[in-house]
Design a protein around this nucleic acid. Sequence first.
DNA 1: ATTAATTATTGCACTAAACGCAAAAATACA
DNA 2: TGTATTTTTGCGTTTAGTGCAATAATTAAT
Lengths: 217, 217
Amino acid sequence: MADVQEIDGAVKEGRRERKRRQTRERIEAAALALFLERGFDGTTIEDITEAADVSKRSFFDYFPSKEEVVFAWQDSFADELADAIAAQPEDASIAEVIEGALTSLLLTASSDPQRLAIGALIRDTPVLRARDQLKYTKLEKKLTEALRARFGDSEEERLRLRLLSAIVVSTLRIGGERWNEGAHELSLQEFAQHMFGELWATLADLGALVRQRDPNR
Amino acid sequence: MADVQEIDGAVKEGRRERKRRQTRERIEAAALALFLERGFDGTTIEDITEAADVSKRSFFDYFPSKEEVVFAWQDSFADELADAIAAQPEDASIAEVIEGALTSLLLTASSDPQRLAIGALIRDTPVLRARDQLKYTKLEKKLTEALRARFGDSEEERLRLRLLSAIVVSTLRIGGERWNEGAHELSLQEFAQHMFGELWATLADLGALVRQRDPNR
DNA sequence: ATTAATTATTGCACTAAACGCAAAAATACA
DNA sequence: TGTATTTTTGCGTTTAGTGCAATAATTAAT
């Protein structure tokens, strides 16, 4: 009764870590399934712990709150962004780097049905929607770091890159809202292209306007 | 015992409305005083209702949650923004309108010690900080509306103005963060001027960059 | 293998937010 | 004055989240 397979498997992960990871995954899976079925507010923590077969108290040993179960995964998105930025061609301009990285990231994310389902869940749950804003904050931070790493980190550039990051993340957010408002004749890729087109055009127009009024900057 | 003064006072506001308003104000005042004294989390709703001398249950008849007491007032900020936009000179460019309106709004807001205190409270209370993000959403919406009212509302312009609003609100947010990071040798007015200067310059640079790569837009 | 030290899991009691409901109090109105 | 309406309250209930101490599982040491 005491002997289990010790043969293959990860050499680094002891029984403790493995079980902990499994339990965490079990809670997460049970929670998401229930959320999608009955809604976030319609699911109590007890429902989750019963489905995952752990005590109510243990839930809080894995997640600090009910909301965190929904958002735990999404830190990875910001990290993927940093990778995507670094993966852009050497000779690309800053605008091209951003557009390229974001587009490829979007296409990847949108092909994951789980993510789409969670996105829908967040969209029609007010509490989650509020919390979701944090995602953009994180994204903005990561983007700023990634741009600094690639395009310089001088004191003068710092604020500029931060503003640029905020602009890009806002575009992403607004694009997301528009996309989810329905009625897309365009593919996601075309849509993204269109959004970036509008963004760059807006910047160019405003830039020209300001330069014209105040030429010596 | 039944006769109270009915002489002067508002003719439109009956005793009912007046008392209700007074109670609401009493709760609000008591809550804010306690929050500032003991912190948001360190204050229970019972503390508030005792100080305001109403039942615990009545609290929820006036405010849907503890947080709302803090944020109830701040809807007015977005409305003031709309007014400030409308009040800008006729011949001002869109950039000038925005910079003018926001600057005057900022100066007004920063001279209200109550607002500053609440701002500080929000800043060092995580729950409130998360909720505070909604302010920017509202601001963005209002700004978009105000700009549309002033600069046209064609289908092509809609997205552009929405992007611009997001950009401006982001600048406001980032500026606020920078300002609160401390060490200001500049006055608030100078600081705002500097932030907008950086914003317009960033837009102009990016605009030029994009036009140069893709001249026919 | 037995024992000792860590770490994970659980049960239980507790605080606090928020909601529903129906009784009681205050106010308006005729 | 009496009656209808609205406000306030008390009470019970649900649920999220915490603290603590006991128990169980795992790892490491002898």
